[in-house]
């Protein structure tokens, strides 16, 4: 059985994104209990140009984090390409060699390899595996020794609470940042439009397939040639993430799948703790270090206030308001009305 994370606080563990070594340092310095990151190749689900870590950068990052009592969790959470599984198993070997604290994986081949070859390293089930039932989660725990599951962003707090009573492993939930509307790891919308998707290539709605076209006084944001949204002159343009677009259906134009909002579950922290959640995850490996630093500080303060018996809602919303800059937020599926 793999070891426990060394720095798990009594309360909830704050798991923070790092797209670059600079962001890792920013997250550690801002008070992250754990940082997650990935290698600079297709083995992780944020495979964007110029992002992520080399093996050496991971080794240095682990050292920096460990010196300050922070854990490093490494995502190898795409699905290995048939015939090239070796790229993924090498990533697993490298993580173990770097002394990182956990591997985050979704693919059966990767889980199986990590379990058989590196049983001393903790194994976390990536959100890309979309495991939401006790049957599925217990199966992963029994078969591969998975010690934590990152829950898909489709569950309500009530469901999470019930689930925690029926499983033996830790749960980690997303609390801030980008919001997948579709069940993670089960979405091929991006590859339908562009040929590239989270599962195949570690990207969603990739920038190389985006175009902004001015037509008359309107600006259209397109992905793979499909119009995802349109903006009036002077209106802030949005990124054409496929599931956050405006479409025509049932004789109406609307954000059919989801409005262009981001997740903010800060107000739900007390309830998530009561529901038995172990760790809180912040999305955003593609974000800059200034952003990371601010968000991590805000959530760390919230968790600390919560530990002290207070209710951190007011403090956190004040701190996070600056981050969203008028962008809209949602508590997502955590409140059942979302569905």
């Amino acid at each position: 059985m793999a070891s426990n994370l060394t720095n798990i606080p009594q309360s909830m563990e704050l798991v923070c994104p790092a797209g670059t070594p600079a962001a890792l340092k920013a997250a550690v310095d801002a008070g992250a209990h754990s940082v997650y990151c990935g290698f600079r190749n297709e083995t992780n689900a944020r495979n964007f140009p110029g992002l992520n870590f080399s093996v050496k950068e991971l080794r240095d990052g682990v050292r920096y984090a460990h010196q300050r009592g922070t854990n490093v969790l490494v995502a190898v959470n795409t699905f290995a390409r048939a015939g090239d599984v070796g790229i993924w198993t090498k990533a697993v070997d490298d993580i173990a060699a770097c002394g990182a604290d956990a591997i985050i994986a979704a693919d059966l081949a990767v889980l199986d390899y990590a379990h058989k070859n590196h049983p001393q390293v903790r194994l976390h089930l990536s959100v890309q595996a979309a495991a939401a039932t006790p049957e599925a989660i217990n199966f992963y725990a029994q078969t591969f020794g998975v010690q934590r599951v990152v829950l898909p962003r489709v569950m309500s707090v009530e469901e999470i609470e019930k689930l925690n009573k029926e499983i033996s492993v830790e749960t980690e939930v997303f609390v801030f940042g980008g919001l997948c509307v579709m069940t993670e790891g089960r979405c091929a919308l991006s590859s339908y439009a562009t040929g590239k998707s989270p599962n195949l290539t570690g990207v969603c709605s990739p920038p190389g397939d985006v175009s902004y076209d001015e037509e008359g006084d309107k600006l259209y944001a397109r992905l793979g040639g499909f119009t995802i949204d349109g903006f009036e002159a002077g209106e802030n343009a949005g990124y054409p993430t496929l599931c956050k677009g405006r479409f025509n259906a049932n004789d109406e134009t609307s954000y059919l799948f989801e409005d262009p909002v981001s997740l903010n579950a800060a107000a739900l922290l007390p309830r998530l703790r009561a529901a038995g959640v172990t760790a809180l995850k912040i999305e955003g490996r593609q974000r800059g270090k200034a952003y990371i630093s601010q968000v991590v500080k805000a959530f760390r303060q919230a968790v600390d206030v919560l530990d002290a018996g207070g209710n951190a809602e007011a403090e956190v919303s004040a701190m996070l308001n600056a981050m969203t800059e008028g962008g809209r937020e949602t508590t997502g599926a955590y409140k059942k009305i979302w569905r």
């Binding site: 898909p152 962003r153 489709v154 569950m155 509307v181 579709m182 069940t183 089960r186 979405c187 091929a188 919308l189 339908y192 599931c243 259906a249 049932n250 109406e252 609307s254 059919l256 799948f257 989801e258 599926a333 979302w338 569905r339």
Partner: peptide
Amino acid sequence: LPLAVSGRCYHARA
């Protein structure tokens, strides 16, 4: 092609 599933119902939403 079955492309995605979600916790949310789009027929209901529409």
